[in-house]
């Protein structure tokens, strides 16, 4: 194997591991809450991390097609966040309002 390829593979593997750790932390935030906005933000960040992970998979396996998944996620992924933001702005559910009242 050419040295540059080995370096690229090592770098991609390390960044994949770092991204996985970041995803775990973000999922922990989504579970813990405490407010609904925290969970929505965690989901949004999870989408961003997924885009980065897909890009690394594309580099590691040399599959250009994976990049399209990343493009689609980047273009559409924040739609859920916007919809959730509107949901919160309109008052959310009874439960969410109660939790936010506690803060």
């Amino acid at each position: 194997m050419i040295p540059t390829d080995a370096f690229l593979e090592t770098a991609a593997t390390i960044s994949a591991i770092v991204l996985l750790i970041a995803m775990l932390i973000v999922i922990l935030r989504a579970i813990l809450g405490p407010s609904m906005a925290d969970r929505v933000l965690a989901l949004d960040l999870l989408t961003t991390l997924a885009i980065a992970f897909v890009a690394i998979v594309a580099v590691l396996y040399g599959q250009v097609v994976y990049l399209d998944v990343g493009i689609a996620l980047a273009l559409v992924g924040f739609l859920a966040t916007v919809a959730f933001a509107r949901f919160i702005a309109r008052g959310g559910t009874e439960n969410a309002r109660k939790v936010e009242g506690d803060d």
């Binding site: 097609v65 399209d68 689609a72 273009l75 559409v76 739609l79």
Partner: peptide, 18 residues
């Protein structure tokens, strides 16, 4: 290649949703 009418239509519909 990967792609096609269904996924393209879904992406376009999400644009209109936005």
């Amino acid at each position: 290649e990967p792609g096609g009418g269904f996924i393209g239509g879904l992406i376009a519909a999400s644009a209109f949703a936005l």
